[in-house]
Each structure stands twice: as C-alpha cells, then as structure tokens.
Write a protein that binds this DNA or RNA. Structure first.
Lengths: 221, 221
DNA sequence: CGTTCAATTGAACTTCATCAACATGTGTGG
DNA sequence: CCACACATGTTGATGAAGTTCAATTGAACG
C-alpha cells in the first residue's frame, strides 16, 4: 500500500522529463522551510531530488491534517488550482527542482506522450489518496501505524528505515494523537515487530507480522 | 467542500470533449447494476449523464469503504491502472457515456489542450480526495454528516435534496456506522437544521447552521 | 550540568461501535 | 384496497478504543 502520496514516485534514474522541460531552478530548503504556502499563486510542480516534505492544511480551530509526505523522486503540486490549497514545507534539508507550469504546458504541446505520462502520475496520486481514505476510515490505530511504517520501509532497501518526521506529523497524517502514535510504537516494539534504536529511525524485525497487522489485502499496490 | 469526488464536475452544457472523442456508447444501468468491477481491465472513463453511482472497495474481512459517489456531470475512472482498483455500480437508474481509453489518447494527441483540461479534472479529483481525507481524519460524526449533506445540497438548486443512497452507503462513505448516521440525522432534525420528509430526500432548514457544523473554513471550494 | 523540547507513560473521560429491540415504510399477494 | 412481510431505518443500553489532561522520562545542545 502506497501511503506517501503527494504524487507517485517516478523513475529518477533518468532526469524526469527527458530534459524536454527546461532546466528549471533547483532550490535548497532547510528544515521547516516553506516550499509553498496556502493561497500562494501556483507556479507549477516540484520534483523532490533529495530530502522530504510534508503537505498539510491548518484549520481555523487549530486542527491540522497532513495530506501527504513527499520523498526523493516524488512530484508535488497536484490538486491545486490557481492558488495552492495548502502549505508544503521541508522536514529536513531538501533539494527540489521546480517544474514551471508554462514550460510544462509548452513541453506537453510538443510531446503529447508527456501528457499521458503526467496523467498517469495524476492517476497514481488519486489512487494513493483513495488508499489513505481507506486507512483513515477503516483501520484501527495499530493498523494505521503498521501501514505507515510498512510504506516507509518500502521506500528504502536499507535495514535502518529513516523516519524524518516527528510524532506530531505522524499523528496528524494518520488521524491520531501523538500519545496514540507513541503507545502503538511501543506496542509494536513490545511485540518484537520493530526496533526503535533512536529517534528518527526504526528497524523492521518481523516483516510478515507487520504486513499482517497492516491488514491491507496485498492487492493494493 | 466538495465531497463527491469520483471526479470533478465538468460543464455538461456542451458535450464534454467537443465531440472530438468518438461518439462512444451510452449505457443504461438499473439500480445496483455494475459499471465495472475490481480487477476488470480498464476500458477508459465514464461520464455520468444522469443518475448516480458509488465507487467502493470491499476488504477480505468484509469491511467496505465507499471512496466516492458520482452524479450527473461527473467523470469516473481516474486512479486506476491496467485493471480497476475497486467496484463501481449504479445507485438508481443511471445513464453513462463510455469514453474509451484509445479514443481519448488519440484525441489527446490531436488536441493538446484536451490533455490540459483532463489534467485539471484529475487535479480536482485529487483535491476532492484530500478533502475527504480531512473529513475522515479530523471531523466528528455530526460534522461529517453536516459536510456530507452540505455537499449534497450544493448539487441541486431545488429545495428538496435527493439522497439516492441508503444509510449503509452514507455510513461506509463517512467512516461511521448506520446507527451513528441515523442518530446524527435525527439530531440535525431535532436541531431544526434539516427536515426529513421521507426516505431518499432531505430539506435544509438552516443553511448557516449547517455550514457552521460542517466546520469547513469556507475557502474549500 | 542544567535547560528545553520531544517522546513516553498513566488515569479519567468521551465518542462512537456494537448488540439488541423496535418502528416505519415499501412492496406483494390475497 | 387492505394486510402482512421483509427491508430499511430508528432508538436504547453497554462497552471498547482513542482522546485528553497530567506527570515523567529521555535526548540534544549550550
């Protein structure tokens, strides 16, 4: 199950759009630096080159919902109209490449297959959001945690899985409180499913059980 | 807040894609007839001409999540890969126009602006799913009901708002049980916010209070 | 070594789910 | 057209899961 969902990961071995899109500017962001803010005029998409970002919406009453995390290889910026619909900032030191709307439109006119590709990415994005809805709607706290950790683990080959976001970010993503996140992390550790060697990292000790707990019926991508 | 979210509504005054897309077949569906089933090979998109559909996923353990409702003017079929990712069927007598994948791709190559338009529709779809995530993640039962009724009311000009889906469908969409849906409907009626003249319809008596309850900060489309 | 912020743990409370009974209203056959 | 039957929807009582409030621990940095 694909949880991280700002946009689907694209093949980053090759520069994303074959260089047809002009060599747009690369920006370097520090922790919690804004990529864009709600209400800003949309300039286009961003490709995350390294690091991680979070996209979230803050409500008048202070409630916050993290809509998606984005990692290296993801494209962020779908689902906005003339202005951005929510805030997006970096979790850690992050490099992004801006893909300007105008250059994208130009490239799309020149190479129609690009549009198809982009449409596919958008479709994947929709799929991810649907998965997230299901998670928020139908899963218990520990199932959500398991699903989340599983998707994070799926992003690396390494044994030590980075967790660049704080508990509050995880909580606001999964629709839980930091206390519940913490309790269930502890519970998963007690069950010998994961290890928590330090803040910001975890290790999967029993992948089968983690998958079982995540309870998603395999056929989710 | 846009809840109905299979795809954003497009202008249906004019035939959707200016007729460039071949005059694809129009299908007529009775109540609970399938539009497509999970696992079927994706044939393309469908434009709802009249009636209503529901898109949902059923889990091995029987849990069901309605991902979206679709009404006249909506396009359904985003977020699927080679095969459909979940079931979609009609709630009532429904007419749909099939937009075949191949004819769409052909049309896109001929008229690049079509791709942009479709990309915008996909973006709106993502936006709607994000709204749904927020609803499921952050709202109480009565706030969810209010949001849902508000979005349904926003679809008609008439006083009497149709509610073509049963309580179970509403429950599985909002992440609640039928009992909770029923209780909160009753509660809203007791609060003189809505009237429930009969099954399948409701009337908004106090739109301001409904909006207040829905708690979405206006700036959601 | 102490300060500070994040994370963890504990206890009481709230909300919603669950189980169960009851009502309504929709359709069918007499 | 009425009466009955099954569906769907409503209402009530109880319990579990997660939130909230509060205290404690732990780690990072000066």
């Amino acid at each position: 199950m694909q949880l991280s969902t700002i946009a689907s990961t694209v093949d980053t071995q090759t520069p994303w759009m074959g260089g047809a899109v002009s060599t747009s500017g690369v920006r370097l962001l520090g922790a919690y630096d804004a990529l864009f803010r709600e209400g800003d005029e949309t300039t286009g998409f961003y490709e995350i080159l390294s690091g991680a970002v979070r996209a979230y919406k803050i409500f008048p009453d202070g409630r916050r919902q993290i809509v998606a995390f984005g990692f290296a290889g993801d494209i962020v910026g779908f689902g906005h109209g003339e202005t951005y619909r929510f805030d997006c900032d970096a979790l850690t030191m992050t490099r992004v490449r801006a893909i300007h709307k105008s250059s994208l439109l130009r490239a799309m006119r020149e190479r129609p297959e690009l549009a198809e590709k982009l449409l596919k990415v958008a479709g994947d994005e929709v799929a991810s959001m649907q998965d997230l809805s299901i998670l928020l709607c139908r899963k218990t706290a520990i199932e959500r945690m398991a699903s989340f950790l599983l998707s994070m683990a799926g992003r690396t080959t390494s044994d030590m899985v980075p967790l660049p976001m704080c508990r509050a970010d995880i909580a606001d993503y999964l629709g839980l409180t930091i206390e519940t996140v913490s309790r269930n992390m502890t519970r998963l550790r007690a069950m010998r499913v994961i290890d928590l060697p330090n803040r910001g990292n975890f290790v999967v000790r029993d992948m089968d059980r983690l998958r079982l707990l995540a309870q998603c019926d395999g056929n989710m991508h």
